[in-house]
Amino acid sequence: MSFLARHRIILPVVSLAVLLAATFYMQPRAMSYFGLNLLFNLAVPIALATIAQMMIIMVNDIDLSLGAFVSLVACVTATFLHDTPMLGLLILMALILAYAALGALIHTLDLPAIVVTLGMSFVWGGLALFILPSPGGASPDWLRSLMTVKPPFAPMAVVASIIIAVVTHLLIMRSGIGTVLRGVGGNARSVERAGWSVIRLKALAYGLAGLFGVLAGMALVGLTTAADANIALRYTLLSIAGVILGGGEFIGGKVSPTGAVIGALTLTLAASFLSFMRLSPDWQIGAQGAILILVLTARLIFRQKGAEA
């Protein structure tokens, strides 16, 4: 195995560094505390959502309902959590449990996750519409101040991303249970033979996804101070792209939490970078797609290097 293939994390790191350098070259004033904060402002909820998606991809499934789920959480946060904190907290915990139950159901009945989550995206979206038929609500004050806190040295978004990366790295890559969870994606049967209950592990992975989805929705409301039922629909695709950009694979339990967070930062930065380029708004979305393709093309180099060795 070559150096590059063994250290898959290099690709996301290099992509982010190149994009960041290009952004600073275009707009030197971005190279400041305030500038960085603006660049990565919306990265925190996206990073959390990407981690949530990673938990699902880790066990060889894919979640097409994540965007709708984060939107629902945002709606709950902006209404119940703001008005009646206890009830709001209970609802959010129930949502996490619902995710865990979903994982158990998918495993027990051997259902295709892509379809079940597709159906769930209607359910979450419907509930969100039910709670908040028109945009509105308000962020709980503590959440607002948490998301706009100004730590020394580095802006909030950067500090939060590092914390998310470290915590999930310890949980997934370093801890015993994390290794077993990745084992479910690698070879569920051998994990089962080793005496683990795969159904519980799947429920745990989905529950973790639910937890990070809830955190993503809360972080989003803390930043936007209001919510609507469609606020985070694009997170479904963003989170999948973030996981893959971060060096994750759709099968085999090969994921990288640090990579996923960096992937989410890269996607956020791509949007900021394009607005600095004064690109016509018509092409902004397309250029984002092009950047995505470009970065993923770089994976080829890693693959082939790995194959030659």
Binding site: I240, A241, F250, S280, D282, G286, G289, I293, L296, T297
Partner: peptide, 27 residues
């Protein structure tokens, strides 16, 4: 072409490409 030459997973390839098509339509 994206799937074959760049060996991208189809989900990601069609997702990224769809952003480009969307831009073309807007433009």
């Amino acid at each position: 072409a994206l799937i074959y030459f760049l060996r991208l997973p189809p989900i990601i390839a069609t997702l990224a490409a769809s952003l480009v098509y969307q831009s073309l339509a807007i433009w």
